[in-house]
Amino acid sequence: MKWINVTLAAALLAVAGGGVAVADTSDKRIALSNNYAGNSWRQAMLRSWESVTGQAVTDGVVAAADAFTTAENQVTEQAAQIQNLILEGYDAIVLNAASPEGLNGAVKEACDAGITVVSFDGVVTEPCAWRIAVDFKQMGKDEVLYLAEKLPDGGNLLEIRGLAGVFVDDEISAGIHEGVAENPQFNIVGSVHGDWAQDVAQKAVAGILPSLPDIVGVVTQGGDGYGAAQAIKAAGRDMPVIIMGNRHDELTWWKEQKDANGYETMSVSIAPGVSTLAFWVAQMILSGQDVPKDLTVPFLRIDQDNLEENLANTEAGGVANTLYSAEDAASVVAEAKAM
């Protein structure tokens, strides 16, 4: 009986300890090195960092978590910034990098100085650093999978791409085309570049729409859904299922349509709060846990039933956000280990 009690207590301790620091990190200092702050996504990213890490410092999980942003979005400037952070003796640097390769020298210096480097969003290729990357290809594919489920009969799709020549645009588009290849009931009949901007997308869609047959769905990359809706409405066509990208104007439009006629779609993008995920991963590494070098950011997906909740949490003109906890980080790490 006594033995059982002891085992039970140990098991309970293990459960309670899961995801929380193994070794004490209360004297560790973590820095955020950020290359750019000039849009609403980055602003939300920095605010997320502030709120989550501020609480962590108050709770004594870490000693400090300071954010530093370079003014000019320049590789040289950020490299100098990282060198400063090394000299200031931080234990870990969480990094949103201006370039995948350009900062490798500075990152290597940091690693050699015994500093843990966790890059996210803008990841670095230097092997000593951790990477929390976005699987944009899967994001594109998920859009088609959703449509396949919702529209089993298939039909014609219009694809709105992002900014031509940018890596992200190629990846999402590749995922969409892969999804269509696996679901041959769908057929992409037109493709335009909307530059992730509402007005550009509206104009491009208005231009191609007259030449298109009926379309059942619009696959997008975010920021362009509302513009597509405006153009399709102006052309007097039946509203197809337009995949949204978590922007406030897109979610607002969706909510209006949902209330008016039960319109159904889904919305997917990356939450700016991914900076807080990177923070907890850095904290896990500092606490001595085994964390694989390559991790994947979970998407923030909004569906019909949690639209209202997400819309309420999205500030006007911004992007839907979520803050990550230590448990979220632990499950992302566990997922990467399982692969």
Partner: peptide, 21 residues
């Protein structure tokens, strides 16, 4: 040229969109 490609479909709508923008 656009109309040749689409075999005449949506010619009027295209002009309307062009005028609007």
């Amino acid at each position: 040229a656009t109309m040749v490609f689409t075999q005449g479909q949506g010619g009027g709508d295209l002009l309307t969109a062009a005028l609007a923008f």
